[in-house]
Design a binder for these strands. Sequence first.
RNA 1: GUGCCCAUAGUGUAGCGGUUAACACUAGAGUUUGUGGAACUCUCAUCACGGGUUCGAAUCCCGUUGGGCACCCCA
Length: 442
Amino acid sequence: MPRTPKAKSFQAPKGMNDVLPGVQKYWDKFYRVVRELSLFYGFETLETPVLEFADLFKKGIGLNTDVVEHEMYTLKTKGGDFLALRPELTASIVRAYIENGFANQPQPVKFFHHGPVFRHESAQAGRYRQFHQADFDIIGESDPVVDAQVIQVVYAVLSELGLKGLSIHINSIGDKTCWVKYRDELKLYYRNKMGRLCRNCKKRFKENPLRLLDCKEEECVALKAAAPNSIDYLDKPCHDHFKLVLEFLDELNVPYVLDPYLVRGLDYYTRTVFEIIHDDATGSQTALASGGRYDYLVSQLGGKPAPAIGGSIGIERAINEMRRQDVKVAAIKPKVRIFLAQIGDLAKKKCLGLFEEFRKNNIYVSESLGRDSIKAQLRVADRLGADLALIIGQKEALDETVILREMQSGVQEVIPLAKIIDAAKKRLKKIHPRAIANSNNS
RNA sequence: GUGCCCAUAGUGUAGCGGUUAACACUAGAGUUUGUGGAACUCUCAUCACGGGUUCGAAUCCCGUUGGGCACCCCA
């Protein structure tokens, strides 16, 4: 049933947020870091549509996962297509890989992808209905070294952001052959303990015993302690693979914790799975990033079989953590050197022209052209911390002159309009002998 | 989807059944009209929305919406 807000003024839909100017500097920082590292590690940027066929996710992520079952935004188009707002990036990346014939390029292919994703769940701190992910994926390579590399990039991004207290939780959940054995073992273990399991877990026992290990109910956690580990049921190839991943991580000197009970909520994972977690003082943990290997996904979505691994960072979570840890981030905001003040329409016109000229000379100028009172304009100039104010009044506009005022001292001089750029440059150089006058940033 | 808590100017708060809804900061206008930083004056809230109880509601009750937390799940 359709519903529109009753309130007289509109609000953003639940769980969807405006990113206000005040926090842009964190986003800028994030994108700067992530772009730099993706280039350095050889990931090529890929962008995919926000909407995909709903089936892509049903098939890719798994019908019985919460993400697909309860959290997907779906819609039917006029043409009758069933589309969905992407709940994650991996399935789209794989689709793009197959559709654009990347299988015929030198393997592996390394993609960097970022953008908004959507999940219809109840919003709370660090959990939104629209949030952003940055994804690193390597498709077409099974060597465990790329597992380590993906983990390394993701970890590098978070630590380059200045985040402290990160730990990498890692596990291997094996592949199809291991699962058969392990699932049986789990069922065997839990069979006579059914009575002590929570309601959800009773369901899990039937549908997906692996998820029993995900439960946080006290009873279930207790039972879990003695449950068989997936690691013990890895077959030889999976075991060797995992062992090498860990050895590579040792070599990279990234801190990790073996977490035998780490299983992920998406069906496509095989072998390596990981989460990068921040533990805060109160003991609560937030996953800032996660990922894993998905060796069957490409073929499952109709491509020529290709092994793959990926990791994604929750951008909002990373940024929230930066703010919580009080990471110092400089705003990308040019230092205001010159302020243009005017009185009268003719003067406004002259200011408009001057504005362009300063821009071409790479000098950052500011203004408050909409304000008519000179007093109010100078107040703004002062607040912005401008070094110089250039004032064009009615008289100056007619004379083709400009008043150049040094804000600090209040000393003024009348300069011909034609010479103002040079005069202003010279004056700025005097005020900031070391700064390069034509750099527009401090 | 479940449970608990919350909602007053842009921000942070006061108000606890009867007030011109208060205070601080911010913002805008101004203090004899062409010059900033101080001071002062003024301006900015249909008290989230809708309904009810009451002579009277920001204040009590119900619903909605939104926010927070926990569960669930996840980034």
